[in-house]
């Protein structure tokens, strides 16, 4: 199953790498994968994934034939979580590129990625709380994965506070880029540190494929791809909004001056 994660995240990073290193590839990718195409493709995949999850994939059975319907949320919860991490990683990558190249678009891209990562992180918490409620009957459990995400959310909330606390635009971009890297480094550290404490909660479903039947796996993977593509559409949209905002400010300056 680890191989499947790799298979899943590899294309995204290959595309990201191409985009960064080859200007022609960048133009081609940017022209071909428009926000609308990405959005529609991602949405369609998500719908297919939902259909498969609810109508094709069987419900897992634990113990003496007890079927667990609430497991369905994992077709949504896990892809959202993975996508959120991609947002954070892209945020740091673009942040690093900004520091090296000092081009404003990398700041925009970094900001867009972090914000989309943050949005998806909130969805992780939300779906996680729903799962906790249905499985353990309480709204909040200090369960390792949810706790990890809570800490990450607090950390990235700091990113937005930091951005708004910077008076000068250039120092905002610079410090935000630095913090996006620090935060991304802190993501795996948070993950491991939480696991230093033995959890009292058994892991009911892992996302490792051992207990997944092929229809379940298909629904899961299609949701994952759909979510990742959809998030890229959001990042692109966010990026174009920032470009437009910059244009508007520039025009206002021209008119005012």
């Amino acid at each position: 199953m680890k191989a499947i994660y790799l298979l899943y995240s590899l294309p995204i990073f290959v595309i990201a790498g191409l985009v960064v290193y080859f200007p022609t590839a960048r133009r081609w990718v940017a022209d071909f994968f428009t926000t609308r195409k990405l959005g529609v493709a991602g949405f369609a995949l998500l719908m297919v994934g939902l259909y498969l999850a609810f109508f094709v994939a069987p419900e897992p059975v634990v113990g003496e034939g007890k079927k667990i319907f609430s497991q369905k949320i994992f077709y949504y919860h896990v892809p959202v979580a993975e996508t959120s991490l991609i947002g954070f990683i892209l945020g740091a990558v673009f942040g690093g590129l900004f520091l090296v190249k000092r081009e404003r678009r990398y700041d925009f891209l970094s900001y867009a990625s972090v914000e989309v990562g943050f949005l998806f992180g909130l969805l992780v918490e939300w779906t996680g709380v729903i799962w906790t409620r249905s499985e353990w009957g309480t709204w909040w459990e200090w369960e390792p994965r949810l706790t990890t995400y809570l800490i990450l959310m607090l950390m990235y909330a700091g990113y937005f506070v930091l951005r708004s606390a910077m008076a000068e635009e250039s120092s905002r971009a610079r410090f935000a880029a630095v913090y996006s890297i620090i935060a991304a480094v802190s993501v795996p550290l948070t993950f491991f540190s939480i696991r230093l404490i033995p959890s009292v909660h058994p892991i009911v479903f892992t996302s490792s494929g051992a207990q997944m039947e092929p229809p379940m796996l298909a629904a899961f993977l299609i949701s994952m791809f759909g979510m990742a593509i959809f998030s890229l559409a959001l990042i692109r949209a966010h990026y174009s909004i920032q470009l437009m905002g910059e244009e508007v400010e520039y025009l206002k300056d021209r008119l005012g001056g």
Binding site: M155, A157, G158, L162, A165, M166, V178, A183, S186, L196
Partner: peptide, 27 residues
């Protein structure tokens, strides 16, 4: 160094320092 350069000055430090140091505190 980052927080002292912000408008919020020392108010910013807890917000960015505490979450990054949580893993450290746990250990």
């Amino acid at each position: 160094t980052i927080s002292i350069n912000s408008k919020m000055r020392d108010m910013l430090l807890p917000i960015i320092f505490l979450p990054v140091s949580i893993p450290l505190v746990i250990a």
